[in-house]
């Protein structure tokens, strides 16, 4: 039996230990904001946080997750107040199809923990999620805007 916390809620899991977290979140926990894009950790559409760090959930097995705390896009806003990164995404009108954007946002939240005021080069070297619509220019602007918003919120 695996016990883990998802968006603050304690949950139990007793199925296949080798099932990726991604499918647990989507099928068992009914949290479909986390997306499947490649299944091999290349695209980042399935990015969530495990104990506060960004992880591609298609490559993490349920058997290894006893006691961890998972945050998904559904758990990012607090009391209906959007996270600064989500706000920045809306303000820069980033999404096109929108499919990869929840993963982009989760990756950015973690990026800004390590680089609260990232340079373009730091973004280039550390933000590796794929966007097939090519919204990168707006993603970059939104990352900078989010950094600014987070400082003003402090």
């Amino acid at each position: 039996m695996i016990t883990l916390t998802v968006n603050g809620k304690k949950l139990n899991y007793s199925g296949d230990g080798d099932m990726p977290l991604l499918w647990y979140l989507r099928e068992d926990a009914n949290l479909q904001g986390t997306k499947f894009g490649c299944g091999i950790g290349e695209c980042g559409a399935c990015t969530v946080h495990i104990d506060g760090s960004a992880v591609r959930s298609c490559g993490v097995q349920m058997g290894d997750l006893n006691g961890v705390s998972v945050t998904t896009i559904e758990g990012l806003a607090t009391n209906n107040e959007l996270h600064a990164v989500q706000k920045a995404w809306i303000e820069e009108d980033v999404p096109q199809c929108g499919y990869c954007q929840t993963g982009q946002i989760m990756a950015t939240v973690d990026l800004l923990k390590n680089f609260p005021n990232p340079t373009d080069e730091e973004i280039d070297n550390n933000h590796t999620n794929l966007c097939r619509c090519g919204t990168y220019d707006r993603i970059r602007k939104a990352i900078h805007r989010a950094a600014y918003l987070m400082k003003s919120e402090d």
Partner: peptide, 18 residues
């Protein structure tokens, strides 16, 4: 800006896959 942006960034929009 896109009217459905909030639903997109909160993961609340349903794609065909969902």
């Amino acid at each position: 800006g896109q009217k459905l942006a909030r639903d997109i960034v909160t993961g609340n929009i349903e794609f065909g896959f969902d």
